[in-house]
Computed example of a mutant assay.
Amino acid sequence: MQWNLRMRAAQAGIWKSTEMRRRLAEHGLEISAGKMSALWTGTPTTIRLDDLDVICVVLGCTPTDLLICEPDKVNARRPAQASTGAGPQPSPRLGRHTSVPPA
């Protein structure tokens, strides 16, 4: 995923993280300077959905405007398949209790 906060903020006329932080606070979301810096300069590893809602309201956008899918990166992470075309072999789940199939 690509985090697109700065571009969406620029489109909304917000050029500095301090301005974004102030607008978020006006909508009830108090963010520390450190957290705002992390959201502004990088891609967050996690974000609360409630926080995402407020960010979208402030920027007048939807989550799909902020989170851009990158399917090429997903394909690059996929392990190479054998030339036989067979997928990965499932491994047994040791130590787990299994239920009996219905009669």
Rank of each mutant, 00 (worst) to 15 (best):
P102A: 11
A86H: 14
P101Y: 00
W15L: 13
R6T: 09
T43L: 07
A12E: 08
K16I: 09
G34N: 13
G13N: 07
V57P: 06
M20Y: 02
T62S: 09
M20T: 04
I31Q: 07
T84E: 04
K73G: 02
S32H: 07
I14V: 00
A76R: 12
P90E: 03
E70M: 07
G95T: 00
E70V: 11
S91A: 10
L66E: 00
H97N: 08
M7L: 13
A12Y: 04
L59W: 01
L29A: 08
L24K: 04
W15P: 05
Q11C: 08
E26W: 05
H27L: 13
M36L: 12
E26R: 07
R6A: 05
E30Y: 09
T84A: 02
V57L: 14
W40D: 03
S32T: 14
P44R: 01
Q2N: 14
V58L: 01
P101N: 00
R8D: 06
M20C: 02
P88W: 15
A86T: 14
D72C: 08
A82S: 14
S32L: 05
G95A: 00
R21E: 05
P90Y: 05
L59I: 03
L59P: 04
E19W: 09
A103V: 05
E30K: 10
I14S: 04
R48G: 15
G87H: 12
R8F: 03
A80N: 07
I68N: 03
P102L: 06
P63H: 07
L52R: 01
S99K: 11
A80T: 13
I55Q: 06
A38P: 05
A9S: 05
P63D: 04
D51K: 12
L66T: 00
I14M: 01
D65L: 01
D53R: 11
L52I: 01
H27W: 12
M36E: 09
R93D: 04
I68Y: 02
A12V: 01
Q11K: 04
D72K: 09
R93K: 07
A9F: 05
D72G: 10
L66N: 00
H97M: 08
R96N: 01
S99W: 08
P63F: 04
T45E: 15
M20K: 01
A25N: 11
E26V: 02
L67Y: 12
R23N: 04
D50W: 09
C69W: 14
A25S: 12
M7C: 10
K73P: 02
R96M: 08
P79F: 10
P79S: 10
A76C: 09
C61N: 00
H97C: 03
M7Y: 13
A82N: 12
T45C: 13
R8M: 11
D50P: 02
D50E: 14
Q11S: 12
